[in-house]
Simulated assay, not measured.
Amino acid sequence: MVDDGDTTGEDAGRLVGAGRVLAILAELARHPDGVTLEEMARAAASPKPTVHRALASLARFGFATRNGRGHYVLGDEFLRLAFAHHEARPDHVRVGPVLHSLAERYGETAHYAILDGATVVYRSKADPPLGAVKLTSTVGGRNPAHCTAVGKMLLSHALPDDAVVAAWAGGRSLERRTGNTVTTARALAAELRATRERGYAIDDQENEPGIVCVAVPAFLTSPTVPSGAVSVSAPAYRTSLSRLVEQVPAIRAMVAEHETPR
C-alpha cells in the first residue's frame, strides 16, 4: 500500500511518505548550486537516513541527481517536465490575470497580441470596469502591425535593423489608417529604432483617431524572444499618451511577474 502522506493520529504534524519526498524536492529547488546531504537534513529538519531515502526516490525518477562535487541538484527529468509544461501552457491564459490587473488599475483596455506576418492578432483582452468607455477591439481581430503599438513592439524584435526593415516594408503597402500613420520604410525604420532603444512602443492615434496606446514585450514562452506584446489603450481625451508613457515601468513590472525566468 502506498503512503499518501495523510497526517492523522500519531503522524499528525509530520510529513510521511509522498509528502516527505515532495518536501525534499521543494527544498532541493531552493539550492540551484547544489546541497550536501548534511545541509539538506538540517534544512528539512529530518534525520539523514530519512532525507537520503527521499533523495534516492527522487533520483530513481530523474528528479534529483548528484553533481561533480557530490552535491544534490534537481535532475534533468524534473527540469524537462517543468519546461515542457511551461511551454505548453497557452500564453493568452497565462497573461489573462495581468491584463485584468492593468485594466482595473488604469481604467483602460489592456490587450495581448501576437505578430502574424504584417498584422497583429489579439489573443486576449481585458476591458476596464463597468461604466468606463470600452474599445471596439475583439479577441481574434487583426490590425496592421506598422501602426499599432503591439505591432511595432513585435516588429522591432523581428526586424533587428534598418536594412531588414527596408526589405520587409519595400515589398508591401503600408496602409494609412489616420493622418499620423507611418507609411514609408524610412519612417518605419526610425520608429522601430526608437522602440528598440526605449524598450516600449507607442501608438499616437496612428491606427484609430482619438486612441493612444503603449506596449511592452511579453516573454511568456522564451526568456529571449517575445511571444507577444501587452498594451494599454485609451481614448486620448481621457488618458493622454504622455500619461501612459509615465506608467510604462509599472506596466512592464506587472507583465514581468508572468514571464519566463531569464
Results as ranks from 00 to 15, higher is better:
Phe83His: 15
Val120Glu: 04
His86Asp: 15
Lys152Tyr: 10
Val35Gln: 00
Phe63Val: 04
Lys134Glu: 12
Gly9His: 10
Ala163Trp: 08
Phe61Glu: 12
His31Val: 00
Thr239Phe: 01
Ala201Leu: 06
Cys213Tyr: 03
Ser101Asn: 09
Gly62Gln: 05
Asp76Asn: 07
Trp168Glu: 03
His157Leu: 11
Val73Cys: 12
Ser137Leu: 15
Ala236Arg: 08
Thr260Ser: 13
Tyr237Phe: 13
Ser173Ile: 14
His111Gln: 08
Glu108Asp: 07
Ala84Val: 08
His146Ser: 10
Glu27Leu: 15
Pro97Leu: 09
Ala118Leu: 13
Ile211Gly: 00
Gly228Met: 06
Asp91Glu: 14
Thr36His: 13
Ala43Gly: 04
Asp3Met: 07
Ala236Val: 05
Glu197Gln: 06
His111Lys: 07
Ala187Ile: 06
Val98Trp: 01
Ala45Trp: 02
Glu175Leu: 11
Gly19Asn: 06
Leu135Val: 01
Thr8Ile: 07
Arg196Ala: 05
Thr178Ala: 06
Ala43Asp: 04
Asp6Glu: 15
Val120His: 07
Glu191Tyr: 02
Ser231His: 02
Tyr122Phe: 12
Ala234Trp: 08
Leu220Lys: 14
Ile114Met: 13
Met254Gln: 13
Gly13His: 05
Ala189Cys: 03
Ala82Asn: 04
Ala45Arg: 14
Pro32Gln: 11
Leu15Thr: 09
Pro223Phe: 09
Leu25His: 13
Val216Ser: 05
Glu27Trp: 10
Gly9Pro: 05
Thr109Phe: 05
Met254Asp: 14
Ile202Leu: 15
Arg198Gln: 14
Val121Ser: 02
Ala45Asp: 01
Phe219Glu: 04
Arg42Phe: 02
Pro129Ala: 15
Glu197Leu: 11
Leu241Val: 01
Tyr106Gly: 10
Gly210Thr: 01
